[in-house]
Nucleic acid binder design. Structure first.
Length: 205
DNA sequence: AGCAAGATTAGC
DNA sequence: CTAATCTTGCTA
């Protein structure tokens, strides 16, 4: 049986490092089809989702980016090396997961906005509450964090190692075509085309 | 020290 | 369309 951490891990971490050398908007687009995997302690099984929607947040000329005012207590993880997770609380209620994309100290990241549930649906349903349709389990940045049990405890973790990982698309998986558009939920720099959705997916927002 | 705004969501 | 909910960071 294949373990997440052992043999597959090296290749996946290398693929992630390679991906993260590209400019952030390109990373945001290329991340479509990658998988978020959370391994739980008590072997309750994996929770897995395919990324179907992302947004890029840049370090220059992007007033909507949390890094726009430089490092602060909240956004410090955004300035870590590429591959780290930046998780923060919005509206005092919901968490959002980002992948740090720029070299240490720069401050760019990709917000994961929606996932297609792949495995661990029962765990997701338990976390999301009764009566939530499968389509809505991870459809939205706050929802996917709830489904995966992500909180600020995960802020600053590296996604190439440990219990929360970013894995490449499965070999042979179809190429995901991206639909590009403006980012949502922001008021500043709202016109930049930095939102990427998997074409045809019904799991996007 | 006080306050406005926020990369959202659920419910009416 | 609006409330919920609370932390951050700016202004005084």
């Amino acid at each position: 049986m294949t373990r997440i951490g052992e043999q597959g891990g090296d290749a996946a971490a290398r693929a992630l490092a390679r991906l993260l050398r590209a400019p952030t908007p390109e990373v945001a687009r290329a991340l479509l089809g990658w998988r978020i995997v959370r391994k739980h302690e008590r072997r309750r099984g994996l929770v897995v989702g395919r990324i179907v929607e992302t947004e890029a947040y840049l370090a220059v000329d992007d007033a909507a980016s949390h890094s726009a005012m430089g490092p602060t207590e909240r956004n410090r993880a955004m300035f870590l090396a590429p591959g780290h997770a930046y998780v923060y609380l919005v509206y005092g209620l919901h968490h959002c997961l980002n992948v740090v994309t720029a070299p240490e100290g720069v401050g760019e990241a990709v917000l994961v906005r929606a996932l297609e549930p792949v495995a661990g649906l029962a765990t997701m349903r338990a976390r999301r509450g009764p009566g939530v349709a499968d389509r809505d389990l991870c459809r939205g940045p706050g929802r996917l964090c709830q489904a995966f049990g992500l909180t600020r405890d995960h802020d600053g973790l590296h996604l190439g190692r440990g219990g929360l990982r970013l894995l490449p698309p499965e070999p042979g998986a179809p190429i995901v075509e991206a639909v590009v558009g403006p980012r949502v939920g922001i008021t500043k720099a709202a016109d930049l085309p930095l939102r990427f959705r998997a074409a045809g997916s019904r799991f996007t927002t």
